[in-house]
Nucleic acid binder design. Structure first.
Lengths: 142, 142
DNA sequence: CTCTGTGCAAAGGATTTGCACTACG
DNA sequence: CGTAGTGCAAATCCTTTGCACAGAG
């Protein structure tokens, strides 16, 4: 599955006329392997371990590109650096604690029909969606 | 309605034991009046126009506090500063263009039951939710 | 009165730019 | 080969922190 996510994304890149460079492949692999939920800098560090020649800049630029392709989505963690989530099959859902910023992911999705209706109304070409529920996690309810 | 949003928020502050300062009132008014969709710095500038004595720092700190209260939610616009959205009745929904970062807001919401189920499962105390659909807007589909 | 909130300036990070170099197609 | 992509360092911009002072309760 990690495999097919990787392949799918590479296909998207190629289809849209972007080059399949070694750096992009490596960065994507690292992103998917890490569970697709980290900051640009964290990802750069991961990549750097096995590929010391790939710079932080390339990671930033690749993430921005992946954002435009709808493969990844930046979210604001309330503090510090932005985090990027990898969108399995175009969507992602999570709970965020507004106090400790812990993130819990979940899978339920009953949004497809709503999403399509709204997009039709605005002539939007839908790429995916992100649903964020927020509140207090168990430990922060004190 | 802007009025009641303001009053409701002030009540929440008081209930939770935070002080009702002039700065917080002014910042909240500006946020609501601006339509609740701007960066901390933009908001600071707005506030500064009529209240030159209220500093940027206070705006940052107030926004963080409002985030913890579930009144406001930071989102990452893909570039530059984080944007804060005011959550009318605890939720907010928008379309984001992954190319030009234009934001269109909409109101449909059929999420309440899903949201409650998921939160129950994780013993989360729900404050609200944010649904983000993304894709290409009409002008960027070329 | 007391303790939370504020303002300023400076520090600390994160992200972006400019430019020469490399390598995909 | 030509152009898109890369890497580095420096610049820029956003956000946080430390500390003295002011004002809400």
């Amino acid at each position: 599955m990690s495999h097919s996510s990787l392949q799918e994304t590479l296909d998207v890149l190629q289809t849209r006329g972007f080059r399949l460079t070694k750096a992009r492949r490596v960065i994507l692999e690292a992103l998917i392997q890490a569970g697709g939920h980290l900051s640009a800098d964290d990802l750069a560090a991961q990549v750097h371990e096995n590929n010391a020649n790939i710079g932080r800049m390339t990671v930033y630029r690749t993430l921005e590109l992946l954002g435009q392709l709808g493969v990844v989505r930046p979210i604001y963690q309330g503090t510090g650096a932005a985090h990027y989530v990898f969108l399995h099959e175009g969507h992602h859902h999570h709970l965020v604690c507004t106090n400790c910023h812990q993130v819990i992911e979940f899978d339920d999705c009953t949004l497809d029909t709503v999403a399509e209706m709204v997009c039709g109304r605005f002539s939007f070409q839908l790429q995916g969606h992100l649903l964020e529920l927020y509140g207090l996690c168990t430990s922060c309810q004190a």
